Amino acid sequence: MALETALAPLFPFPQLPAIPLVDGSGLFPVRRIFCVGRNYAAHAAEMGDEVDREAPFYFTKSVFALHPGGGMLPYACGTGDYHHEVELVVALGRAGFRVPVAQAGALVCGHAVGLDMTRRDLQALAKDRRRPWDVAKDVEHSAVIGPITPAGDWAGPENRRISLSVNGVVRQAAPLSDMVWSIPELIADLSRYYHLQPGDLIYTGTPAGVGAVQPGDRLRAEVEGLEPLELVIGPLPE
């Protein structure tokens, strides 16, 4: 029996997410989400870990975990300890493979404020059992991101600060210079393992001060010079 040359999908193809540019001039289609672990020594210490200064390490989130913009952020199901982690996000606009550090900056097309929301209780359980972090990190709506500021419109992370407040009280605050691995170093290292492409996002790690959120909490995430993120945590799932 001849194989059909054109097969109809069993259900509609999913629509991939896109993030608006801060000036409203276009959309950034998202391809992949890479996240950097333990890129701030103080955060690693508060989690009982140490920074591996030989090389960065990563985990990933599905593009379907993306939550563009602020507004209402659903509280994740399956957890009683949902944590905020504010991060600087790097958006890539060019392809690259085995890119030297000195050339890595050319791949960047913009930056944004992001949140890596985490089921902390499930992450702790996974660590204890030496299991992957997927169910703790790759959570629906957990890759929060604000509009992207084009690279040419932001001077870069030098002398900039990152912070997050909950109900008006600052919980996380640090200079971006506290990052163990710089943006060019992260891009160059990732490009050893992946053919980086336009549409890839890199969440560059979080400073110390992570903590649990509760329904009704109001969060404001900021990186100096970028559009801030403001959102409200939704009710507990039924």
Rank of each mutant, 00 (worst) to 15 (best):
V30N: 10
I33H: 02
C35Q: 11
C35A: 15
C35V: 11
C35N: 08
G37C: 06
G37V: 10
R38G: 01
N39S: 10
N39F: 07
N39L: 10
Y40P: 05
Y40I: 03
A41Y: 10
A42K: 15
A42R: 14
A44G: 05
A45T: 14
A45I: 07
M47C: 12
G48S: 10
D49H: 15
D49W: 06
D52T: 11
D52L: 11
R53E: 11
R53A: 01
R53F: 00
E54K: 15
F57R: 12
Y58Q: 12
F59C: 01
V63L: 09
F64N: 03
F64L: 14
A65N: 10
A65Q: 00
L66Q: 08
L66V: 08
G71L: 04
G71T: 09
M72W: 01
L73K: 04
L73Q: 03
L73N: 00
L73R: 01
Y75E: 04
Y75P: 03
A76R: 12
C77G: 14
C77V: 06
T79I: 10
G80S: 13
Y82L: 15
H83E: 06
H84L: 13
E85L: 12
E85T: 06
E85A: 00
V86E: 09
V86H: 07
V86W: 10
E87W: 07
V90I: 03
V90A: 02
A91M: 03
G93A: 08
G93W: 05
R94T: 01
R94S: 12
R94C: 04
R94D: 03
A95I: 00
A95F: 00
A95K: 13
G96K: 06
F97K: 15
F97Y: 13
F97C: 08
F97W: 07
V99T: 14
V99W: 12
P100W: 12
V101C: 03
G105A: 13
L107Q: 07
H111Q: 04
A112M: 02
A112S: 08
V113C: 15
V113D: 04
V113K: 11
V113E: 11
G114N: 04
G114S: 05
L115Y: 02
L115F: 05
L115W: 00
D116L: 08
T118W: 02
R119Y: 00
R119N: 05
R120I: 08
D121I: 02
A124I: 06
L125T: 04
K127Y: 02
K127H: 03
D128K: 15
R129W: 02
R129V: 02
R130V: 09
R130K: 15
R131I: 00
R131Q: 15
P132E: 01
P132W: 07
W133G: 00
W133M: 03
A136V: 13
K137I: 07
K137Y: 01
E140Y: 09
E140F: 13
H141C: 11
H141K: 10
V144F: 03
V144Y: 01
I145N: 01
G146D: 08
G146P: 10
P147K: 04
I148T: 09
A151P: 00
G152M: 03
G152K: 09
A155T: 13
A155S: 14
A155D: 14
